[in-house]
Amino acid sequence: MALTDEEVEGLADRLYEAYESKEPIPPLTEETEFDTEDAYRVQIELFDRISEGGREDVVGHKLGLVSEAKQEQLGIPEPIFGYVAHETVLQNEPIPTEEMIAPRIEAEIGFVLEEDVPAPVTPTDVLTSTKSVVPVVEILESRFQGWSIPSAQDVIADLTSAGGVVVGESHRDVTDVDLKMESVVVSVNGEVEAAGVGADIMGHPARAVSWLGNRLEDVDDGLRQGELILSGGITAAIDVEPGDVYTVEFGNLGSVELRAE
Rank of each mutant, 00 (worst) to 15 (best):
247 T>S: 10
96 P>L: 02
150 P>R: 04
35 D>P: 03
13 D>I: 03
211 W>F: 10
261 E>M: 11
190 G>T: 01
222 G>K: 11
169 E>S: 14
187 S>N: 08
191 E>C: 13
251 G>D: 04
198 G>P: 09
238 I>M: 13
159 L>T: 00
181 M>C: 12
77 P>T: 05
162 A>G: 04
30 E>M: 12
163 G>W: 10
177 V>T: 14
226 G>N: 15
195 A>F: 14
49 R>H: 07
156 I>E: 07
85 A>L: 02
18 A>W: 01
164 G>S: 15
235 T>K: 04
136 V>E: 04
76 I>Y: 12
250 F>R: 07
211 W>Y: 11
145 Q>T: 13
118 P>W: 01
140 L>Q: 05
206 A>F: 03
7 E>T: 10
90 L>A: 06
234 I>T: 06
88 T>I: 12
120 P>K: 13
76 I>N: 04
244 D>R: 03
67 S>D: 06
60 G>A: 08
83 Y>W: 09
221 D>W: 07
194 A>R: 14
36 T>D: 10
106 E>P: 04
95 I>E: 03
61 H>S: 06
175 T>L: 07
130 T>F: 10
168 G>H: 09
36 T>G: 05
63 L>V: 05
139 I>F: 13
87 E>Q: 13
201 I>V: 15
159 L>A: 13
14 R>W: 06
122 T>C: 12
245 V>D: 02
112 V>D: 05
49 R>N: 03
84 V>E: 07
11 L>H: 03
67 S>N: 05
17 E>F: 07
18 A>H: 01
22 K>Y: 03
216 L>T: 10
59 V>W: 01
78 E>F: 00
181 M>T: 14
38 D>M: 00
258 L>V: 13
114 E>R: 14
53 G>L: 02
126 V>K: 11
125 D>A: 15
221 D>E: 15
225 Q>H: 15
207 R>N: 10
166 V>G: 08
59 V>Y: 01
218 D>S: 14
